[in-house]
Design a binder for these strands. Structure first.
Length: 768
DNA sequence: GAGCACTGC
């Protein structure tokens, strides 16, 4: 039983289980006058530093007084809130900048209102009107309309839909209808604002402002390379630097620096919005080499609405993060009030992953039970992506019972994706897990790495959303200074296979020449080209094949698209089954919830048993989808009994519906019968065909059992182990195929199937 | 015996 020894000589000693931890010396901040740099809010420092602009950029910071700004249009009930936003005072400056420039970079910190207000400031501008133009197409002239809409891109679906709802309410033209899966392109109601994300499109007639995900605009680019329906593209949250936003930036740069003939001479305005002040790479990218003079890229910075956050570093490097975390939490908890005039004063700690979070939770709960009963209670909420929706939701709810402090232990999900209310203290362990692709090994690694300064500032900022806050970094100031300024953009961390095919399909012949803010190593691009050639997506001369074009039309990674096309081939003829499997594997981390205890495993053993197939994970997914869709009474209960992730399963069903629709439209299959269909298990013969079909996309993602009973991969000849999440874990088959290959504590193959060794050369010999 | 976070007509 953990117990705090109150009468021990050292009051700061606490005992948790068999660990003794000293609180002494912790969080005792250095006196101010010893600090070479005041320990104030680093975000402010960062902002001030970036005010000095390099030559060649027009900088517009100070602007008109609020009184000169136009009165708001739209619903009067939102006027006061909108006028109070920091951005409001800059609206004339923003309009003027866009009249004078085609590209504007706008830095606005969290809470400035840029995502909601900038589009509303601009859509009534003259340059934003739709116009009829004459286009020269293949020698002849044809009339077309250009412009009229503004697109606002977001990295996440929820951001796009919630912003659209918010802005449509402000504009007084609410997006009607229920939430959910309306896939209809338009709606009879007229409205100013619409949105478009996968599985959910709401674009009323008359839409001028369209919020969409970055991936969705890339899809539109495939049909409309000149983005003719838009007068402007607003790229929001560019600092997150997803692969999609990097590709999008490249295409936008080509459009704005091209001859504009495809738009009838009408320029496309581009507004780049970032929450991070460090935008030199982005500004340089859009100004460098443009046909317009350099000063056509304008820059504006707007202050955020953020309370000051006091930042403390540890005086010495901490040997044990868990120990240090525990000390910090309980020091805070016992010394700081539960709330003040700004509201609750809860704690948010950033840790690296689920395992670290769960062990920290145990330690905190053990220690909390030994506290003086007169002290406030604590309640711990874990927060990471694989948690169920309800469990995630708990972390956002105000706590029940006034005498309790909320402690949220989160991964970097809380850095960008979600906001936890009530947080005034942030504890930052200084690390996060990062997935990195190793092109030479053809595999990924997932390891905890030091975060960037930008990330550390972002984490600290989470303490100042509702009132003045404090951030405790569990690392020294010297360590902070050694951190990289920015995170490595995703395009330098992932397999560029998909990105290269995206470029090829959009007419980029020389992908090495495509403008990118950060270029992947040539080796990565070459590796991707070789892999695409093996898949039959590009020809010997590097041009995209018909196969490649068909692959791009599916919203799945190229290898999966290749498997879908193979499945439609009469030789395999298993498209419905393959769609079911791909829907499951691309719906999220895993549709099977992980079971921690032996009891929990025993509990679902029987219910899950009917799903498991000896051929491996892919056939198990197929059985699961088939049984799930055959279930007609209570699918929710069905999932709960088998401990299946309902969110991922619903998502899988959406993907299945979308893929089925696409395949029918492309003439790859007949309209399938409606669910529910009676469950019929696939025969072992059919199972072999399905696996051979997958091998067309994953030929080199295979391994053969060596004489020493280890699996040796076809590509690179590495030893690989079957991941514990696989139904084949611990089993020895003559050969395996896997969809993922990740190094964590060792080389793991995930989503594994048993195959015959002879199938591998067979699949290799079938290249188109 | 183990799982950072997103996303696609």
């Amino acid at each position: 039983m953990p117990r705090r020894r109150k009468n021990e000589a050292n009051e700061h000693l606490i005992r948790v289980g068999n660990r003794v931890i000293s609180l002494e010396g912790y969080l005792t901040k250095k006196p101010r006058n010893e600090d070479p740099v005041p320990e104030g809010n680093r975000q402010v420092e960062q902002v001030v530093a970036s005010h000095s602009q390099p030559d060649g950029f027009k900088t517009e910071r100070d602007s008109e007084s609020p009184s000169s700004a136009k009165p708001p249009t739209g619903d009067p009930q939102y006027f006061a809130t909108r006028q109070a936003l920091p951005l409001w005072a800059h609206q004339e400056a923003i309009r003027r900048l866009l009249r004078q420039n085609d590209v504007v970079v706008l830095v606005g910190e969290t809470g400035s209102g840029k995502s909601t207000q900038v589009p509303q400031f601009l859509y009534q501008e003259k340059w934003c009107q739709r116009r009829r133009v004459n286009l020269k197409v293949a020698g002849s002239t044809q009339e077309a309309s250009v412009g009229g809409m503004i697109a606002i891109t977001q990295p996440r679906r929820v951001a796009a839909t919630t912003l659209a709802h918010r802005v449509s309410r402000e504009a007084g033209t609410p997006l009607s209808g229920g939430e959910g899966n309306s896939t209809s392109k338009g709606s009879p109601t007229k409205g100013l604002v619409g949105y478009s994300v996968r599985f959910d499109h709401r674009v009323p007639s008359g839409t001028r402002l369209k919020y969409l995900t970055e991936g969705m605009l890339l899809q539109e680019l495939l049909r409309d390379p000149h983005l003719r329906q838009y007068s402007a593209i607003i790229v929001d949250e560019i600092h997150e630097r997803s692969v999609d936003v990097d590709l999008l930036s490249g295409f936008l740069k080509q459009i704005i620096s091209g001859d504009k003939a495809g738009r009838g001479g009408i320029p496309l305005k581009v507004i780049i919005m970032s929450a991070t002040a460090n935008v030199n790479t982005i500004k340089a990218f859009f100004s460098d080499g443009a046909s317009e003079p350099k000063d056509s890229v304008a820059f504006l910075q707007v202050e955020g609405r953020q309370f000051p956050v006091d930042i403390a570093h540890t005086p010495k490097p901490v040997p044990d993060i868990q120990e240090s975390l525990l000390k910090t939490i309980f020091k805070l908890h016992t010394e700081e009030s539960l709330s003040d005039k700004h509201g609750r004063k809860d704690i948010l700690a950033f840790l690296t992953g689920q395992e670290e979070i769960e062990s920290a939770q145990r330690l905190i709960e053990e220690h909390a039970s030994t506290l003086d009963p007169k002290l406030p209670k604590v309640k711990v909420f874990p927060l990471f992506g694989q948690l169920s929706m309800e469990a995630q939701h708990d972390a956002f709810q105000p706590i029940k019972g006034g005498f309790t402090r909320k402690i949220v232990l989160a991964t970097n999900i809380a850095e960008t994706s979600v906001t936890v209310p009530g947080v005034r203290y942030v504890i930052d362990c200084g690390k996060s897990k990062v997935k990195q692709f190793r092109p030479r090994l053809g595999m990924e690694s997932l390891l905890a790495m030091p975060i960037s300064k930008s990330s550390a500032i972002q984490r600290a900022g989470r303490a100042g959303r509702e009132g003045p806050g404090k951030c405790f970094r569990l690392y020294t100031e010297e360590t902070y200074e050694t951190l990289e300024t920015m995170d490595l953009p995703e395009i330098l961390r992932t397999d560029v296979l998909s990105a290269v095919l995206t470029m090829k399909a959009r007419g980029i012949d020389d992908v090495l020449d495509f403008p990118l803010m950060d270029r992947p190593e040539i080796e990565s691009v070459e590796n991707a080209l070789v892999q695409l050639h093996i898949l039959g997506a590009i020809a010997d001369d590097g041009s995209i094949t018909d196969m490649g074009r068909k692959m791009v039309s599916f919203p799945v990674a190229p290898r999966y698209a290749r498997v879908l096309l193979a499945a439609a081939d009469a030789k395999y003829d298993c498209l419905l089954e393959v769609i079911d499997i791909i829907s499951c594997v691309t719906s999220g981390e895993d549709i099977f919830l992980q079971l921690r205890s032996e009891e929990a495993r025993e509990e679902v053993k029987e219910a899950r048993g009917e799903l498991f197939r000896r051929e491996g994970d892919l056939l198990t997914y197929l059985t699961t989808m088939q049984r799930y869709t055959a279930e007609n009474s209570d699918r929710l209960r069905w999932c709960k009994e088998r401990k299946i992730n309902i969110r991922n399963m619903k998502r899988a069903l959406n993907i299945r519906k979308q893929l089925r629709g696409l395949c029918v439209r492309q003439g790859m299959m007949e309209q399938p019968d409606e669910d529910p269909q009676p469950f019929v298990p696939v025969s072992p013969e059919k199972a072999s065909i399905i696996l051979k079909c997958f091998l067309r996309g994953f030929t080199l993602k295979s391994a053969i059992l060596a004489p020493d009973r280890s699996y040796v991969t076809s590509q690179g000849k590495h030893v690989v182990a079957i991941h514990p999440s696989s139904v084949l874990h611990g089993q020895k088959k003559e050969a395996i195929m896997f969809l993922e290959h990740v190094f964590t504590v060792k080389n793991y193959a995930k989503k594994v199937s048993a195959i015959q060794a002879a199938w591998i050369p067979e699949a290799l010999g079938q290249g188109e």
